[in-house]
């Protein structure tokens, strides 16, 4: 936990201290997660599980749940990026000025609709496959932060830099790819990281429509008054979300253009 809190501070710290903190975060986050999981494992081992608990809490169920949740989150994130990044670029071009507010409003609706309602709607009306329906639902849900990230990232690029690049004779296209995009990368990556964490965390809802995930342990445990199953499912989901954020953080550090 401390490692996560420290991680959030690093933009305010500078120089050597900063890289030290970063290294601490790289090691600390997985260490804390590993300790939490190990503690839970030992606790579960020490308990005598009844028939219901042992059918919900076992290695096979947990492994399947983790794979399902990662699969849903990765596909949803990929789908989100494929839609939101090009859309964000398009919407910041001068010719798109008129439609921008409309698209943003639509993306807002995507995130404003209750996620669970969206999932049931997609499942019942469109796709009778829990995983696929969940991927689509999660993607709709995550489009807004990535779209926003892309747009804000591009908009905060100094207009002077863009003008200078144009003045040097660069085409609009090469200004976008060689000046604007690299400068927008940090904010864009934050959007991607948000999308990943959001989809990993909300993927548990897929359990309602047959998509599996750690939500199955949570719902099954809750439905049968077996709090241990709820705890294991919650820890599993939280572990994945924290690790997703951790990987996202490392990716941000590595992909951030040199000199920024």
């Amino acid at each position: 936990m401390t490692a996560v809190a420290v991680g959030g501070l690093d933009s305010r710290v500078v120089g050597r201290e900063r890289s030290l903190l970063r290294r601490l975060r790289y090691v600390g986050v997985p260490a804390v997660v590993a300790i939490a999981c190990a503690a839970m494992y030992l606790y579960v081992q020490s308990q005598e599980l009844d028939n219901i608990e042992s059918r919900i809490i076992n290695a096979r169920v947990i492994r399947t749940a983790a794979f399902e949740q990662i699969e849903i989150a990765l596909w949803a994130t990929a789908l989100t990026l494929v839609v939101a990044v090009p859309l964000g670029i398009a919407l910041t071009r001068p010719w798109a000025r008129r439609v921008t507010p409309i698209i943003i409003a639509l993306a807002n609706i995507g995130q404003g609709v209750p996620a669970i309602g969206l999932l049931f709607f997609i499942y019942i009306v469109l796709i009778r496959n829990g995983s696929t329906a969940a991927i689509l639902g999660m993607a709709i849900y995550a489009v807004l932060p990535v779209l926003r990230g892309t747009m804000v990232g591009l908009q905060q690029v100094d207009r002077g830099v863009v003008k200078a690049a144009r003045g040097m004779g660069m085409s609009k296209r090469s200004v976008l790819f060689r000046v604007e995009m690299p400068l927008a990368v940090p904010i864009l990556l934050t959007g991607v990281r948000t999308a990943l964490v959001l989809t990993v965390a909300t993927a548990v809802l897929a359990a309602f429509i047959g998509g599996g995930t750690f939500g199955e342990l949570i719902i099954g445990g809750q439905a049968q008054g077996r709090p241990l199953a709820v705890a294991v499912g919650s820890l599993g989901a939280a572990t994945l979300a924290i690790l997703a954020d951790w990987i996202g953080g490392i990716a941000e550090d590595l992909l951030r253009p040199k000199g920024l």
Partner: peptide
């Protein structure tokens, strides 16, 4: 086996999908 919310099982069964 598809594990899902109880309330939507009836419709899923009536449609034979999934």
């Amino acid at each position: 086996q598809t594990v899902q919310e109880f309330a939507i099982i009836y419709q899923a069964t009536a449609d034979g999908d999934p």
